[in-house]
Design a protein around this nucleic acid. Structure first.
Length: 945
RNA sequence: GCCGAAAUGGCGGAACUGGUAGACGCGCUGGACUCAAAAUCCAGUGACCCUAAAAGUCGUGUGGGUUCGAGUCCCACUUUCGGCACCA
């Protein structure tokens, strides 16, 4: 009997929709389970086969949990603000709201096609004013809060103002940016503008000056992503660092909690390590070096205060505010040139380059706090202004970067730790004995660190400090397609917030979305919106992560107009029990969401301290990238065969991605374009019509190509992306094989958390499996048959070992192995010709979360009412699985020589005696002395000779 | 550069806490059915040695180590992938 997937799947899609099969009720009497996918950004390219991998996994878990008696929340939505829609608008004139709506529509069709059990009435779209109203609302809460360091929680800013009015800011337990002290009287005497400026140092959402990548030619700020080799990817224009007034979120206040609370999470260790490295906690010393002949001092943070006697120079970041003040007149030109030079490097480049160093001397000297020696002060771009204090004390004897710098510029390298007792120690390792260090001499490093900290504190030179690498999050974007800030200013520069009753502040419609003048957001062009009464609105918008930092809460109560979610619903759904998404979000999104969640917890708005209890990263499904090799600057353009590659230097060749449909034998060593492929390629990329194509034997211009000509292409695995023309659309796969087959094949490809290449070829196996499964229910002449006779022990063994395996596998998210368990079971049942209802119906229920359509069809054909997806999930009965024989591998010296099937009842002594009597074993033992026999019960036997 | 992950047949992968390496599937080879093909079904399929079988030798990225026994643990390295704060 043929399974007509198109008609049958369409039928159940409609049925589920009409019967609201997947509607999620806030039924507080049932235990809850919340399974969430990281919601997608709806790009213009549509979903490719890589996206649904995690969605299918979570869909299976959601269905399994529901069939196991849980009330399951498994929603979907769209992260719909962002740069690509804006770029697209600039290129095509199509407004982001239009393209985004179209893309969402397309995504929904594609998702529905796969048969997910989403309750679409809970859909969340971040660019919907009904949603971003609450994003703005949370922003205002952040704006109106400060972080109380003794209570370790966010508190209203009004409370802080009261404290200032009574005590000033002396010993106020508040996390803040700057440290200028005032008392109550001084506070009251300050202007309102000045008070506002001070409060910005305390607010959790605040405005400060921060560096951005500014591209003068494009008139816009660029993402790191948009910069290649120090110039803009579009147009190749120069990019420089520019300080701009920006909104930021004080995530640093939460550093310790973000670090500590990870202990409670069921996340992979690697993910936790990535998060804690991002937070980057280090304990060290904050100390000050006076600048010679000037009333200035340089603040540094070091984790190696023990090496203070090894300091031979200081380095400031080029952007450091002291640079201009201390630079001598003779060095001025050099310093200015250098600042200009490093301004054009990205932060990444500055950190990556460890082979060469650059820098210039400022002409100024610092005074060593212990020896009073003169220490030259340099500037160098390997020191970053955003890290620590933007200045370091350089210890070239025990820091690799410093050492490289010292060698380059002939600065003294002082050895202050003797590591001769630690032959494997790296020069940066904190082991050894202090030398050349005055009062620290002879002490172990770890002790020296303790001692010097005490001395620094007692002498008032410095203090012990905990430093985090985590930086406050830049929350401003000079972009159009994002949430507007509910903030406005008056002519004097006072800051005002919109009353929450006036939220949402809707994004005004702009016909032309072009970068604003003088580094303003495009919104600056919406003059009627920006200027109202005597005020001007903030024209920056919020970044992509604003909407995605709390969307999982909105699903709990998505249409609530009075709150971001009702207290009752939050108390019931609590947190996400299982979160599935890509590692690319390992730090960014997950860190910001955890921060927002903790803030909301402090405000008493959620009842859990962490949003995502268990998290699993799905691996990327990779595509095959096929490229032709083009010799750069060749006239006419010359394409060469991959086998000729070695004749050219790497930087002489450009890879031109070729649509995989044109390539023969793609994803093999001999992938190539034949004549037809070349013609298609040129039709698609007409700019290469005049090219020369050269392989190992010969070369041809396009119009001369012989019929048997082949040019080999370069075959690589990589991202599936529009850019490489290697995107496989799930719709196409589903049209041919059906959604059930697509779902199971994605799962069958391999472990959920591993990256793997997509290859449609292998799908036949799953397709055959589904047909075999379906035909278990049909006779040779296409009659539906299910018999009521009791099942045999053998049949029950096959069924129950499958049930056991599949249940275990779902709990461990090991779906590839459950698919093979299904295949084994169906193969066996088919072999023995099983038609028993007692076996086949539980098998269908077991398969339902994986293949929802075909199993629903069977369920109804078998005469059951309601949906199979609301039936009860089968549980394994161990009684059917008992074996009374054991298959022992018998090894000699760890090498398997024989397989021995014995009764389970045999004890150790019997086994030991009898194994030595086996002919197959005896021959190995002839003339050898048996040293030991190892028997692991029910596992293996090893004879050592 | 820094941080994280991965590497097993021609391919995707399996192997629970160290205990029969290659489950399951693709591909390939041979066979059945067919006028023929497709589809379907059956058998074989890590490499080497050998006419063949039996038996054997080698074999989980590379080099070392621990162990009765290592794909799994330890050390060093290679390659590929993800992130590095304005892509999402």
């Amino acid at each position: 009997m043929e399974f007509l997937h198109r008609e049958i799947e369409e039928k159940w899609r409609r049925y589920w929709n009409e019967n609201q099969t997947y509607k999620v009720l806030d039924d507080f009497t049932k235990p809850k389970f919340y399974v969430l996918d990281m919601f997608p950004y709806p790009s213009g390219a549509g979903l490719h086969v890589g996206h649904p991998l995690g969605y299918i996994a979570s869909d299976i878990v959601a269905r399994y949990k529901r069939m196991s008696g849980y009330n399951v929340l498994h929603p979907m939505g769209f992260d719909a603000f962002g740069l690509p829609a804006e770029q697209y608008a600039i290129q095509t004139g199509i407004h982001p709201s239009v393209s985004t709506a179209q893309n969402i529509q397309r995504y929904r069709e594609q998702l529905d096609n796969i048969g997910f059990n989403y309750d679409w009435s809970r859909e969340v779209i971040t660019c919907d004013p009904g949603y971003y109203k609450w994003t703005q609302w949370i922003f205002l809460k952040l704006f109106n809060s400060y972080y109380n360091t003794s209570e370790q929680k966010a508190k209203p800013i009004d409370e802080l103002i009261h404290l200032f009015e009574r005590f000033g800011n002396h010993s106020i337990p508040a996390h803040h940016s700057e440290d200028s002290l005032f008392d109550a009287i001084e506070w009251k005497s300050k202007s309102r503008l000045e008070q506002e400026r001070i409060l910005m140092n305390y607010r959790l959402a605040y405005r400060k000056s921060a560096y951005v990548n500014w591209c003068e030619a494009l008139g816009t700020v660029l993402a790191n992503d948009e910069i290649k080799d120090g110039v803009s990817e579009r147009g190749g224009h120069p990019v420089e660092k520019k300080a701009m007034l920006q909104w930021a979120l004080r995530i640093t206040a939460y550093a310790e909690r973000l670090l500590k609370d990870m202990e409670t999470l069921e996340w992979s260790d690697s993910l936790k390590i990535m998060q804690s490295n991002w937070i980057g906690k280090s304990v060290g010393a904050q100390l000050f070096f006076a600048v010679e002949d000037q009333n200035e001092s340089i603040e540094v943070f070091t984790t190696r205060p023990d090496t203070i006697f090894g300091v031979s120079f200081m380095v400031l970041a080029p952007e450091h505010p002291l640079v201009y003040k201390i630079t001598s007149s003779t060095q001025k030109t050099f310093v200015e040139n250098y600042i200009n030079h490093s301004n054009h490097k990205t932060e990444r480049e500055r950190q990556s380059d460890n082979k060469s160093v650059s820098g210039v001397f400022t002409g100024a000297y610092a005074i060593h706090p212990f020896t009073n020696a003169k220490i030259p002060i340099w500037i160098a771009d390997y020191v970053l202004i955003e890290y620590g204090t933007g200045a370091i004390m350089a210890v070239p004897g025990h820091d690799k970067r410093d050492q490289l710098f010292a060698k380059q510029f002939n600065l003294p390298i002082l050895q202050v730790v003797d590591q001769s007792n630690f032959s494997n120690a790296d020069l940066e390792d904190k082991v050894g004995i202090m030398v050349n260090s005055d009062f620290l001499n002879g002490i172990q490093v770890y002790q020296a660190i303790q001692d010097i900290l005490q001395v620094l504190e007692s002498k008032g030179i410095g203090k012990t400090r905990i430093q985090y690498k985590l930086r406050d999050a830049n929350f401003s974007r000079q972009r159009y397609w994002g949430e507007p800030f509910p903030i406005y200013y008056d002519a004097q520069g006072h800051t005002y917030q919109l009353d929450e009753n006036n939220l949402p502040l809707e994004l005004p419609h702009l016909e032309q979305i072009e970068p604003g003048k003088s580094a303003k957001s495009p919104l600056a062009a919406a003059t009627e919106w920006v200027n109202f009464q005597d005020y001007t609105r903030e024209t920056d918008t919020m970044p992509g992560y604003a909407g995605s930092s709390w969307y999982f809460l909105r699903y709990m109560d998505p249409n609530n107009p009075n709150a971001f979610a009702s207290t009752e619903n939050i108390n019931y759904w609590k947190e996400v029990d299982l979160y599935i998404g890509g590692t690319e979000h390992a730090v960014g999104h997950l860190m910001y969401s955890r921060f927002w969640h903790k803030f909301l917890y402090d405000c008493g708005l959620v009842n859990t301290t962490e949003p995502f209890k268990k998290l699993v990263n799905q691996g990327m499904i990779q595509g095959i990238i096929e490229s032709l090799l083009l010799v750069k600057d060749s006239h006419p353009p010359l394409f060469i065969d991959v086998n000729l590659k070695t004749a050219y230097a790497d930087d002489q060749l450009a890879r031109i991605p070729v649509h995989i449909d044109y390539v023969s034998d793609y994803n093999t060593d001999h992938s190539h374009l034949n004549k037809k492929g070349i013609l298609e390629f040129v039709k698609w990329r007409p700019e290469f019509a005049g090219s020369l194509f050269k392989n190992v034997d010969t070369s041809y211009l396009l119009n001369e190509i012989s019929d048997d000509f082949k040019i080999n292409t370069l075959s690589e695995t990589g991202k599936m992306s529009k850019r490489y023309h290697n995107v496989v659309n799930p719709d196409d796969v589903i049209a041919e094989y059906g959604a059930d087959c697509f779902r199971m094949y994605e799962m069958f490809l391999g472990p959920i958390d591993q990256a793997k290449p997509w290859d449609t070829k292998g799908i036949d196996g799953v397709s055959k499996f589904l047909r075999k499964f379906y035909n278990l229910f049909y006779s040779a002449n296409d009659q539906f048959i299910l018999t009521d006779e009791p099942a045999t022990a053998e049949e029950l063994k096959f069924l129950h070992s499958c049930i056991k395996k599949v249940n275990q596998d779902i709990e461990q998210l090991s779906f590839n192995t459950s698919v093979s368990a299904f295949m084994i079971c169906v193969n066996e049942l088919k072999r023995i010709g099983c038609t028993k209802k007692e076996v086949l119906i539980p098998l269908a229920q077991l398969l339902a979360p994986f293949a929802p359509f075909i199993t629903e069809e069977i369920w109804h054909t078998a005469g059951f009412n309601g949906s199979i997806h609301h039936s009860e999930y089968p549980q394994a009965d161990e009684n059917h699985l008992i074996k009374n024989e054991v298959n022992y591998p018998v090894s000699i010296n760890g090498k398997k020589r024989y397989e021995w099937i014995v009764s389970k009842s045999m004890n150790q002594t019997e086994l030991q005696e009898q194994v030595l009597q086996l002919d197959e074993i005896k021959k190995w033992l002839e003339g050898q002395e048996i040293k030991k026999i190892i028997i692991v019960p029910n596992r293996m036997i090893n004879i050592v000779i």
